[in-house]
Design a protein around this nucleic acid. Structure first.
Length: 247
DNA sequence: AACGGATACAACCGCGGATGC
DNA sequence: TGCATCCGCGGTTGTATCCGT
């Protein structure tokens, strides 16, 4: 089809950003043709959403964000877009990558033999920056303002950590008191007690006959309502989460 | 210095749902 | 109702880079 694939060039980034600033992205399929890009609409959409959007938060994840991902993944499973919706500035792709490269390993049980030390002591490289600096003419029109709900998990975030060394330092310090995977384990009683709280709440009427989430916990069968899980998590935060180590 | 394994992350692929005709 | 098209999501792959030997 004559379409280009592979890594995006700075020039392509510039063209895409300029076009979206001017015309928006109402039709991804037609966009590359209109913009004069030899890319498919899907590729343009992915590039914009995961890398070029002005409200993307670059830099490595803070400890708070990682903890939020762990909790949300526990509740939502591999629904990366739903998790990303709760972490403003983070994309589903980014969260997915972090999960597979960092967090999943952290939660995996230790083998009987002594775990091999992490060979890599320093981050592999500095975070790449977008090839073009994006200054939207009229604000982040594509995603809108961050709702209070969305900002839930970053309300306590103290660093934005574009400075890798500072973030690494923060992580190392936190890891000193929060390093073992046992710290992240949620006891079995967590779900029974937490779900009991949710059911007791007379204002809700969620069905609870789901067939189990990522950890075997029940999930809403039909509604699958994110708000349910948010509420559940908030309730849990005020009770069982107190048992988790303080950061 | 060269090599190979490990790691991180951008990008692609395929599928399913939503929508319009 | 059936079909075509588009979009978004999650899984997977490709590749650059780092690190130890």
């Amino acid at each position: 089809m004559g379409l280009k694939r592979g890594p995006w060039t700075p020039e392509e980034d510039r063209i895409l950003v300029a076009h979206i600033e001017r015309h928006g992205h109402s039709n991804w399929r037609a966009l590359p043709k209109q913009a004069g890009l030899l890319r498919c609409g899907k590729s343009c959409r992915l590039r914009w959403i995961n890398y070029l959007r002005p409200d993307i938060k670059r830099g490595n994840f803070t400890r708070e964000e990682e903890d939020a991902i762990i909790q949300l993944h526990h509740m939502l499973g591999n629904r990366w877009s739903a998790i990303a919706a709760r972490l403003p500035g983070r994309t589903d792709n980014e969260i997915k990558n972090v999960w597979h490269t960092h967090l999943k390993k952290r939660l995996e049980p230790k083998p009987a033999t002594q775990q091999a030390p992490n060979k890599r002591k320093q981050p592999k490289k500095q975070q790449k920056q977008p090839a073009v600096e994006i200054v939207m003419l009229d604000g982040p029109a594509t995603t809108g303002p961050v709702s209070p709900e969305q900002s839930l998990f970053t309300s306590t975030t103290t660093t934005t950590s574009t400075d890798y060394s500072a973030a690494s330092s923060l992580e190392n310090n936190a890891a000193d008191s929060f390093s073992s995977e046992e710290d992240y384990q949620i006891e079995d009683s967590f779900w029974s007690e937490t779900l009991a709280m949710a059911v007791d709440d007379s204002s809700d009427s969620f069905g609870m006959e789901g067939e189990g989430g990522a950890s075997g916990a029940p999930v809403p069968a039909a509604n699958d309502d994110i708000d349910f899980w948010l509420k559940l998590f908030m309730q849990a935060s005020s009770s069982d989460m107190q048992n988790l180590p303080q950061i």
